[in-house]
């Protein structure tokens, strides 16, 4: 669990993760991550695993909402909330 800072670290780490699968992860500053259909569904599961393992935010069944994962802002907010209650 290397990153435990403010939340900006999460944005950077997730973008770096997404950058493995697309040429320019900055597109996700503008477009949704899951519903835009730019990524294969396997990558979505890998992203959830990544958020759990590298951002210290366990994802439970009630967390699995698009509102928590479809944008970088949402992921940042989700991890911040999770860390606050951990």
């Amino acid at each position: 669990m290397p990153d435990q800072g403010s939340g900006r670290d999460v944005r950077k780490a997730v973008k770096e993760f997404l950058g493995r699968f697309v040429d320019d992860p900055d597109i996700f500053e503008e477009r949704p991550i899951i519903t835009a259909g730019l990524l294969d569904s396997l990558v979505a599961t890998q992203m959830i695993d990544f958020i759990e393992q590298h951002c210290g935010a366990p994802v439970l069944d009630e967390d699995l909402e698009l509102e928590n994962f479809d944008t970088l802002d949402a992921i940042e907010e989700f991890v911040r909330r999770k860390r606050a209650t951990a």
Binding site: I34, T35, S41, L42, A44, T45, D61, L64, E65, L66
Partner: peptide, 15 residues
């Protein structure tokens, strides 16, 4: 799971 994640999480992980 939740709507929106049927394939993008539940099915993909099971597969």
């Amino acid at each position: 799971g939740r709507p929106g994640f049927g394939l993008a999480e539940v099915a993909a992980r099971a597969l």
